[in-house]
Computed example of a mutant assay.
Amino acid sequence: MITFNYETDFTLENESSLENWIQKIILKHDCEEGEINYIFCDDAYLHKLNVEFLQHDTLTDIISFDNSLGKLINGDIFISVERVEDNAKDFKVTFLEELQRVMIHGVLHYIGFTDKTEEDQKEMTKQENASLLMLI
């Protein structure tokens, strides 16, 4: 079950189509959907989590807490709408494009992709791009 929660005024307009898309990505990687909670928030909310749980005193666009059990995908994905908006401008893409990339990024982590090394980052970007094409 995929749920969308809001700690800010922002809301998604197309929850059901995004839910279907995320489910397709999970199945494509031979995994099973468990409970995935998206929490959309602002910079201050996510910064507090970053400091408290990860000891990182920086702003970030996403923090994901992975509770997956093997191939059963579970977790909480916190997304700063403010950071996504700023990053979209920096990367010269639409807000929606950047939001969708960040949303699937968290799920790809749960599936097993990482972004610790340059090589891992390239693979993650490749997986994000392939996933975004499945949304069209």
Rank of each mutant, 00 (worst) to 15 (best):
M1N: 14
M1F: 00
I2S: 02
D9Q: 05
F10Q: 01
T11I: 01
L12H: 07
L12C: 04
N14C: 02
S16E: 14
L18V: 07
L18H: 04
L18W: 03
E19V: 11
N20S: 13
N20I: 04
Q23A: 11
K24E: 15
I26G: 03
I26V: 15
C31F: 03
E32A: 00
I36V: 12
I36F: 06
N37Y: 05
N37P: 02
Y38F: 09
I39H: 05
D42H: 08
D43I: 00
A44L: 14
Y45W: 10
L46M: 06
H47R: 14
K48R: 10
L49F: 08
L54M: 12
Q55M: 15
Q55E: 15
T58G: 05
L59G: 03
T60N: 14
D61I: 01
D66W: 08
N67C: 13
S68I: 01
S68R: 02
S68K: 02
L69Q: 07
L72E: 06
L72I: 14
I73A: 09
I73M: 12
G75R: 08
D76L: 13
I77F: 02
I77W: 03
S80K: 06
V81E: 03
V81Y: 01
R83C: 00
R83N: 06
E85Q: 03
E85M: 02
D86W: 08
F91D: 15
V93M: 14
F95L: 13
F95M: 11
E97W: 08
E98C: 12
Q100R: 15
V102H: 04
V102G: 07
V107R: 02
L108K: 01
H109Y: 14
Y110L: 12
Y110C: 10
F113H: 04
F113Q: 06
T114Y: 05
K116P: 00
K116V: 07
T117R: 11
E119N: 13
Q121D: 10
T125V: 13
T125K: 07
T125A: 09
T125D: 05
Q127K: 11
Q127G: 02
N129H: 10
A130Y: 08
S131R: 00
L132V: 13
L135N: 06
I136C: 09
I136L: 11
